[in-house]
Amino acid sequence: MKLDLKKLKLRKVNEQLQNIDRKINDRSFTIINPEGNHAVCAGLTEELNINIKGHVGYYCAGMNQKANITVDGNVGTGVAENMMSGKVHVKGNASQSAGATAHGGLLIIDGDASSRCGISMKGVDIVVKGSVGHMSGFMSQSGNLVVCGDAGEALGDSLYETNIYIKGKVKSLGADCVEKKMDKKHIKKLRLLLKEADINNQKAESFKRYGSARKLYNFKIDNISNY
């Protein structure tokens, strides 16, 4: 079914998608003319296939559960923020705070993501085919952040148990973020994520893994300058 945001109000479209009857079989939708609107496809809870044709604004696919959402364009701040499950695939670039606080699901960004990608992520898997900006993975708690390009300044600052995999250069590491050994289980997980994101030209072994040195978990007077 085609939904034209030039003709229909965004709130109506979101309401319709948020209230799809579980018994209905027609679960594929194409949204046209998003024209940078905010919160397109926010709060979906059902297994739907949605294709958004064009650039969207902030918080696209926020709080997503189960839905499979593809954006054929760029996304603004906070795409898939607080996603619980499902899949969000951005074919263009993403603005800051992509996948912020997301608990689960998979976020794929074909282009670059700007600053604070995966900030405070809590279990989501994020795969960025391009590069990420500064402060990516800031205070991230669990899940995996995979970057096929480079990472900006202060990567993984104050992170907890997220695994960050970077193929390219890291401008600088944030407080308490260190390079860690790639074990077999990490390579296996990374292979799986690359496959899910349809990336065939990268070898999992060529990535470097970054994680927490676990020195900032509890207050220590010796670390006062890092707090």
């Binding site: 940078g36 064009g54 650039h55 604004g57």
Partner: peptide, 13 residues
């Protein structure tokens, strides 16, 4: 500040 400000511009897509 936001893409929606220029969504109407010619050939912006």
């Amino acid at each position: 500040s936001e893409f929606q400000a220029m969504a109407h511009l010619p050939d912006v897509n």
